[in-house]
């Protein structure tokens, strides 16, 4: 596992995670490089979602869980006492498995992240909403219906809305937790294209069930099994010439 390119935006060191007595992550060491897409793959229940949710401390809200080891964001421990978790989550945005827009209008969905930060200026809000929708490749489809309820959109549009909503607060990192598992193939293609464009301005981490997706969109891939990191390398290497036997068996579809 010798990957040395770029600057590590996020780095985990011997990351352990427990749900009560159950150990869900075992000494995971992964680096997510700046302006690169890192994919996390592995069979169901291998801890990939748990892993990505530790990066913005979303697991904090689940009672009875515990983290050990270190997660560094720009070299600073995200569990340090002086780190404000609210600020952390603003810097590390997240898009979830199922599209989860708020039961509000399209406009209000995107403006939400700005409004909670106290932005009231209507013109500024509009500007950011338009920019975010463009950034999420959704603008053309919704520009005439910003006041409509977000639930009126299709699943794929809702997911891109959620991406736009995450972009609006100008995060540095965007975490995608199986973003395409609940949407159709055409919508999936759109989201994948989008992820590739996001890489220019953001650090992206994506958990996916779909190996082709990982191969298509990512620069680096981490393969996990049973809470352990099996192999982490440049995506091309993982998919053409993996070092570990388990990785090879998984990517060739012998289990999973």
């Amino acid at each position: 596992m010798n990957v040395e390119t770029g600057i590590a935006k996020i780095e985990t060191r011997d990351l352990d995670f427990y749900y009560g007595p159950t150990r869900a992550l075992k000494r995971v060491n992964v680096s997510c490089y700046k302006n690169r897409v890192t994919a996390i793959i592995g069979p169901s229940g291998c801890g990939k979602s748990t892993f990505i949710r530790t990066l913005n401390r979303m697991n904090d809200v689940i009672p009875g869980t515990r983290v050990e080891g270190t997660i560094l964001l720009d070299g600073k421990d995200v569990h340090a006492p002086d780190v404000d978790v609210v600020e952390l989550r603003r810097r590390v945005g997240m898009v979830f498995q199922k599209p989860n827009p708020f039961p509000k209008s399209i406009f209000d969905n995107i403006a939400y992240g700005l409004r909670i930060n106290g932005m009231k200026d209507k013109r500024k809000l509009e500007e950011v909403v338009v920019r975010s929708l463009r950034g999420a490749a959704l603008w053309e489809e919704v520009k005439d219906r910003l006041d409509e309820n977000a639930f009126a959109l299709s699943g794929g549009q809702q997911q891109r809305l959620c991406i736009a909503r995450a972009l609006a607060v100008e995060p540095e990192v965007i975490l995608f937790d199986e973003p395409c598992s609940a949407i159709d193939p055409i919508a999936t293609a759109k989201v994948e294209d989008l992820i590739e464009t996001l890489e220019k301005s953001y650090t992206v981490v994506i958990v996916t069930h779909n190996m082709q997706q990982a191969a298509r969109v990512s620069d680096y891939t981490a393969f996990m099994m049973l809470g352990e990191l099996v192999e982490f390398d440049v995506t091309e290497k993982i998919f053409t010439n993996p070092v570990n036997k388990l990785t090879e068996e998984y990517i060739t579809g012998r289990f999973g």
Partner: peptide
């Protein structure tokens, strides 16, 4: 999911 979406955007 609503709560998670909100928290993930940096809401308290």
């Amino acid at each position: 999911a609503y709560g998670e979406a909100s928290l993930a955007l940096g809401a308290s």
